[in-house]
Simulated scan of single mutants.
Amino acid sequence: MDSVEKFNRPAVFKIIREIKTMLQYAVASGKKLPDWILPAIAPIEVKQIHYEKSSSGSSVDFPFDTKELSQINKIYTTLAAAVSPATPMSIDYTTPSKKMFFVLGTKTIPVIRNMWMMSILFLTGFVITGFYLDNIYYVQANLLFSSGLGAYFYSLYTANKYVVNRSFDPTYITFYYNRIIIGIIAGIILSNLIVPPQTNGSLNINTSIISMLGGFSSDAVLKILNRLVSMLITLVEGDAKEIIETREAEIKTKYLEKQAKMKIETASRLLAMLNDIQSKTDDESFLRIKSVVDKILGEEAEQI
């Protein structure tokens, strides 16, 4: 018991609070619970309330023994399975707690309310700047608002299903905002990268729509950029390979030319020496040597 008092007291009471949270959600949602749950929870809750009222320090004995702790764990596990995929944390966070318009309206979830407000802001900016597309500054502002509109649309749509089944994990809030920023950047990049195609009929694809699509699907923009990078790398590698091959061919040609000239010069000297000794050798030997020299000169002349 001492070890329970010293180390597990805060954790036990946290588990009991989460049991209450899951029980309230399960009852409100019409979840089917085992018959033994409520009779088992009642004495535990009574002991907790009595402990919290009577304890003013650490001198009060811990109200639960080992058997009751096992029962608490069993209750927690059963309720967690009943409310899944929701968790105590997601249930708490998706419980409406803030006014929709800060001081007016019904209560809603803070992060969703913030996304609503920003979506309305980007939508308003998109509509207003759309009337002044003859000005380059308004055009860029319009691209910013349209990409933000697409990014917020994606985030709200993604978060919606988790809010509905009460499984929205607040630890992913940073992911949602990070995804929005990435979407805005991706939308602006895509709108400046792609020229709107010529379309017929009712389909109107302009730079604003392309920016909105980029904000909605930053993954698609990432794939496009990766593809462009691969193409550039291939192009650079191809150019480098061609340069190397051309240089090798030039070096080889110069080497062959040099070798051929050396052979011609050598053969010319031999021919000159042969003419000098023509009178000192017989005709058959002279003609044989001369034919070899002429052959060398002919082959090298063809190579050059």
Rank of each mutant, 00 (worst) to 15 (best):
E245T: 13
K67P: 07
S230D: 07
I120C: 05
G215T: 03
I49M: 07
L104H: 15
L225W: 09
L149V: 02
S208Q: 07
S55Q: 11
G150H: 04
M100V: 06
Q278P: 10
E52T: 12
Y137F: 10
Q24W: 12
L23V: 10
N226L: 12
V163N: 11
S167N: 10
L256K: 13
S230P: 02
L270V: 01
K20R: 05
R113S: 09
L69N: 12
A42Q: 13
P34C: 00
V236T: 11
T253S: 14
S97F: 07
V83C: 11
S147I: 01
T106E: 09
D294P: 06
L190P: 06
E299N: 04
S211E: 00
G150I: 02
G150Q: 04
Y177E: 01
I136Q: 05
K258C: 10
I15H: 04
A26P: 06
L33H: 00
S70K: 15
K280I: 15
A220W: 01
A301P: 02
I194N: 01
G148N: 11
L193Q: 04
I189A: 03
K280F: 08
E265Y: 12
D61P: 00
I112H: 05
P110W: 02
T199L: 13
K74T: 08
V163P: 08
G148K: 05
A159T: 10
V163G: 09
L104C: 11
T66A: 15
Y154S: 12
L297T: 09
S59C: 09
F13M: 00
R17W: 02
V127T: 04
F286K: 14
M100N: 13
L228M: 12
F145G: 06
L33C: 05
L235P: 02
V236G: 09
D134P: 05
S155V: 06
A80E: 15
M115R: 06
E242A: 03
K67W: 04
P110K: 08
N206P: 03
T21P: 07
E284C: 05
I112A: 06
E242S: 10
V60D: 06
I224L: 15
E257T: 13
L193C: 04
Q259M: 10
I244E: 12
M262T: 14
A186M: 08
R269E: 07
L222A: 14
F7Y: 14
T106M: 03
F126E: 08
S208C: 04
T253E: 13
T246D: 03
T78R: 11
K161D: 12
I109Y: 02
F216H: 04
S56I: 13
K258N: 14
N200V: 13
F153E: 00
I209D: 00
I128Y: 01
V292S: 08
Y138R: 07
L203M: 13
Q278M: 04
P39D: 11
L121H: 03
A82C: 10
Y152W: 08
M115P: 05
T199K: 03
T207F: 02
V111R: 09
N178V: 10
I205R: 04
F175G: 08
A11V: 05
E265N: 15
A159Q: 12
T124A: 10
S56E: 15
